[in-house]
Design a protein around this nucleic acid. Structure first.
Lengths: 240, 240
DNA sequence: GAGTGGTCTAGACCACAGA
DNA sequence: CTGTGGTCTAGACCACTCT
């Protein structure tokens, strides 16, 4: 389908059409897009215009380009998840992979009111809640509570061995690709459960990271509250 | 000076040459760069190559481009400072300008050992320390301690009325442009001074934001520790 | 060798700002 | 009207991957 004139710059329109197709799953994560020449023919624009659209998608981490091979829809590798979506670092500033020490609970329940609102669900919709304790450098450091809509992840609560990095599982097992997230960070006092599992005093200061993650089309799909002991680690934010 | 061949892509070399000139102050903040055509002639490349270099600089917030007017070295307006370097938001997610309620102290002293290391100073170099209490929405919310090398900011400690946004003053008054910053975020317990001025209990959880800010050439020039009451506000981190 | 993305050029035309 | 950046094209050549 060639692109109609008069709706703003061509490369922006091409970019939007490509985003639509990726969002609707026409090209799956890890799969190649058609070549620049093919896309240029299809849209009735020059190769340079397609290139500009694809470069913009690459800058937004939507696709990955490989010289000599092609352009591929971005996937959630553990590396990408660690460097892009995980921000706790040790004293030396180096990132470490957080390791699940213990699965505290995992099951289905009704959504709380604010959960339903933030996830865009009906008031009494079912959600799956996963609670787990994660280590950093061999010591317990993060108490993590994850809430997702049950409808999007059938059977998730029955999986015995949840992987360390859930976003890869979301993508491979359920066709849900996390694209962006917003984190609200606060300091809170440790409650009884947090104090017990993290090995800190009741009322000790903890970092509370409240994340809402969305797919490419803006649908919110995951709530994640992380309570972190920041005596040995810190949340790193780079402002460029 | 035309660009020599064989050192990688031309537009990268052009970009680096332009960064050098901006860093050394050849073009001051707010001033226009030569036009694309002029730069292309000088470097002996095509206009398209210069354009690609300038677009990259614009993406890094180093220059601002205005159709019909020209390309200008980026400046620190209060807006930019608020949206780019300040991350506390209210319950509704809206940013508010923090207002200085009280200047607690301001003076010169010797650098602590870790301050000297992080700022790249000699062990006994002089630094200026500014301590102030800032409001968010009319309530005290941030206890801020700023440490800068005295050599770079002569007379800063004698200014009566420090502005709300220091980075604009650094740029205008001292020719120091902050370009990037790294923030380490932790949860800490309120000490006596913090508890008193912020109006919280002794030991209450506070967010501690430890910022090291650098100029374009990578010289560290400011240490800033912010202790924040996050009962009414949160640190916002967007992951795209 | 064929196909891919990466770089570079030259030129046309458009949109906008300012004298 | 001139000069600026913004868009779009067509084509050349390079670097890389795979067969």
């Amino acid at each position: 389908m060639p692109i109609a004139p008069g709706r703003g710059p061509l490369y922006v329109q091409v970019r939007e059409r490509l985003i639509e197709r990726i969002a609707e799953g026409l090209w799956q994560p890890g799969q190649p897009l058609p070549s620049e020449i093919m896309l240029a023919e299809e849209f009735g624009v020059s190769q340079g215009t397609v290139r500009k659209a694809l470069d913009a998608l690459a800058a937004d981490n939507l696709v990955v380009r490989h010289q000599g091979k092609g352009t591929f829809v971005a996937t959630h590798t553990p590396q990408r998840e660690l460097f892009h979506f995980f921000h706790l670092v040790g004293q030396d500033g180096a990132k470490q992979m957080p390791v699940t020490r213990r699965l505290l609970s995992c099951g289905q329940r009704r959504a709380e009111r604010d959960e339903a609102v933030r996830l865009g669900l009906a008031a009494n919709a079912h959600v799956i809640e996963i609670k787990r304790l994660r280590d950093m450098g061999g010591e317990p450091a993060i108490l993590e509570t994850i809430v997702v809509p049950a409808r999007l992840f059938p059977g998730l609560s029955e999986i015995d061995a949840l992987p360390n990095e859930l976003y890869h599982l979301y993508e491979e097992g359920y066709g849900v690709t996390i694209h962006k997230a917003v984190e609200d960070i606060r300091a809170v006092a440790a409650d009884r459960q947090a104090a017990r599992v993290l090995g800190v005093d009741l009322g000790a200061p903890l970092l509370a990271i409240d994340r809402l993650a969305e797919t490419l089309d803006g649908t919110p799909v995951e709530l994640r509250m992380s309570l972190c002991d920041t005596r040995a680690h810190a949340y790193l934010s780079e402002i460029v």
